[in-house]
Amino acid sequence: MRSVRGAVAKGRDFTRQALRDWGWDCRESAEDAVLVVSELVTNAALHAHGCHELVLTAGETLHIDVLDGEKVLPSPRAVPRPGVPGGHGLHIVQRLSDRWGSYAHATGKVVWAEIEASRLASRRPPGPH
């Protein structure tokens, strides 16, 4: 994925299709999942040499992994300033997901988030997408 706009749009489209395939597109929290993906992919594009891979896994949770090429782990700014651009992404991820975190790997890092399946739909979907 080359540009921020292109990467984020592809990530949102991929997420919406996966949620639709899994029957998890009926609740408002499905849009929360799309926004979490948007924020994580945007952060990777702006701060970490781009999003190398987006992985969504369905089970008891929707597990979102964004792999990038930067080993420095993210941390939310202490207090984002209202009306000032930037610095809000990880706060949005924290508010909309049930859990999130990050870890380094050989060529960069993974920033992940989880949303409980019970928030997305009443039926449990099949395997990874």
Rank of each mutant, 00 (worst) to 15 (best):
M1A: 04
M1V: 09
R2E: 01
S3H: 12
V4L: 11
R5E: 02
G6I: 09
V8G: 03
V8Y: 06
V8T: 03
G11T: 04
D13Q: 07
D13Y: 14
R16D: 12
R16K: 15
Q17H: 13
A18V: 15
A18L: 12
A18W: 14
R20E: 08
W22C: 10
G23H: 01
G23E: 01
G23P: 10
W24H: 00
W24K: 00
D25L: 00
C26P: 03
C26I: 07
R27Q: 12
E28M: 11
E28C: 00
E28I: 01
S29W: 15
E31M: 15
E31I: 08
V34P: 00
V34M: 08
L35W: 06
L35D: 06
V36M: 03
V37D: 07
V37F: 07
S38T: 02
S38G: 02
E39F: 09
V41R: 06
V41Q: 04
V41D: 06
T42W: 13
T42S: 11
T42V: 01
A44S: 15
A45M: 11
L46H: 15
L46W: 07
H47Q: 09
H49K: 05
H49F: 15
G50R: 03
G50I: 12
C51H: 01
H52R: 08
H52C: 11
E53I: 02
E53F: 05
T57P: 04
A58H: 02
A58I: 06
L62K: 03
L62C: 09
L62E: 09
H63I: 08
H63V: 00
H63D: 02
L67R: 03
D68W: 00
E70T: 06
E70W: 07
K71D: 09
K71R: 08
K71W: 06
S75E: 03
S75K: 14
R77H: 04
R77N: 10
R77P: 01
A78N: 04
A78M: 15
V79H: 06
P80A: 08
P82Q: 13
P82T: 10
P82I: 14
G83E: 12
G83Q: 13
G83I: 12
P85Y: 04
P85W: 13
P85G: 10
G87F: 14
G87A: 15
G89H: 05
G89E: 02
G89F: 10
L90C: 11
H91F: 13
H91N: 01
H91W: 12
H91M: 00
R95A: 14
L96E: 09
L96F: 10
S97V: 03
S97W: 02
D98A: 02
W100C: 05
G101A: 00
Y103K: 07
Y103T: 08
A104C: 10
A104Y: 03
A106S: 10
A106C: 06
T107R: 06
K109N: 03
K109S: 04
V110D: 13
V111H: 06
V111M: 04
V111I: 08
W112Y: 15
A113C: 13
E114T: 07
E116W: 05
S118C: 10
R119E: 10
L120P: 02
L120Y: 13
L120G: 07
A121N: 06
A121W: 10
A121T: 11
S122I: 05
S122V: 05
R123L: 07
R123K: 05
R124D: 06
P126A: 00
G127N: 13
G127L: 11
P128H: 09
